[in-house]
Design a protein around this nucleic acid. Structure first.
Lengths: 215, 215
DNA sequence: GCTAAACGGGGAGACGGTCCCCGGTTATTT
DNA sequence: AAATAACCGGGGACCGTCTCCCCGTTTAGC
């Protein structure tokens, strides 16, 4: 009774193609909406933006947290890919870091703000995996720039993630069609501040991703 | 029938002392709540945080916009005072700028984010007055640092206000007791990026406060 | 072409925010 | 110190909105 073509060991009726496509569209829409309107945006509006019926959202995700988690994980993956792309740049190490920062902003890294929220399970396995991967890759990007004496040594992965998130986030209450007119400008300011040699001493200590999760 | 002691020209029954105190407490509470939870936070919670009954809020402010406007104006005044304080510093011009930035963050400058919101009357006279004052003073602080060759010339008042607001704003969805542990650290990074000579060219143009208001 | 899975719109139920009412309290006046 | 008027604060009604289910219709996959 085994269908040799389908590797379905048990109860794996592979979902329909349009179902997968819709799920993807929902995650994409949710990412944008979370960035623009915060994590409390009505699910019905996410559905509308995704071009699907509201029921499709509720079918795919048992509750809001599940959707938030999926969005956060997907953004982490995108961020990780941005880091890998930057690492492929074999030339100037700081240029690689710059590329990573600007790309991460475009990939809506600020959508993982809910990660530090109180009502959010930070210990979900998917999440910890994605988190580890990002931290390792970004650490690598930053490490190279530090080793080349181009990046100040007193900043951590957490510092970078928070600052880029904050700078690329749309201002509160904005119905931001404004887009990212200023974002890359301001990111560039930050990057100039990150260059070695440091022009001043920072208060506090370099922060890691782990410290960020520990609310 | 004139009471010579009270300079009440017409219908100016000076409000009771506790009424004024309560009004002030409400504005203070609202500032914190707007910063932490955005401009849509329930008015009842603002009342709770202020330690007054909800009716007192609705009595003092005809609608939400009135309260928001008052908060924005008060924060602008605080920011202006921070700038004046910085200008009093007759020594190093860039040190004055640094002092201003850190103080503005502590004074909750990010509470004037709603100013760029769509549903907000940007042409109210009180607001324009406060706005003018802030722009003039910050322009002066930055001008001095530029003249001294310490501040890169390709940044405007708008750039500074936006960046400081964004960096000092609590991450979305945070019930932020986290406080500003990292804020001053990250502001310092920014300040290092602001120093002359510029380490890179910024995309776009220097932005003024006016451009910011023009949604 | 058949079947079962997925879709989408409409609507019931519940939750939460806004705003008013009114009995009690407190500051001010003489 | 007593009178008076303004102010306070909690409770509750109204209303908009979000959530989530139901069911007739559509569409992918065999």
């Amino acid at each position: 009774m085994q269908t040799p073509t389908a590797p379905a060991p048990r109860k794996a009726p592979r979902p329909r193609a349009d179902a997968l496509r819709n799920r993807e569209r929902i995650v994409t829409a949710a990412r944008e909406m979370f960035v623009e309107h915060g994590p409390d945006v009505p699910l019905d509006e996410i559905a509308r933006r995704a071009g699907v019926g509201n029921a499709t959202v509720y079918r795919n995700f048992p509750d809001r947290d599940a959707l938030v988690r999926e969005v956060v994980c997907s953004v982490m993956d995108r961020t990780a890919e941005a880091a890998e792309l930057a690492l492929a740049e074999t030339g100037d190490a700081f240029a690689a870091l710059e590329r990573f920062v600007h790309t991460a902003a475009d990939e809506r890294i600020s959508a993982l703000c809910p990660m530090v929220s109180s009502t959010f399970d930070k210990h979900h396995p998917d999440l910890e995996a994605a988190s580890k991967r990002v931290e390792r890759l970004v650490e690598e990007v930053m490490g190279r720039a530090k080793a080349a004496g181009q990046l100040r040594p007193d900043v951590g992965v957490g510092d970078l993630m928070v600052v880029v998130s904050q700078l690329s986030r749309p201002p509160a209450g904005t119905d931001c069609v404004r887009g990212d007119r200023f974002v890359h400008r301001h990111l560039q300011l930050l990057l100039d501040g990150l260059r070695a040699p440091a022009r001043s001493a920072l208060p506090g200590r370099a922060v890691s991703l782990r410290e960020l999760r520990a609310s």
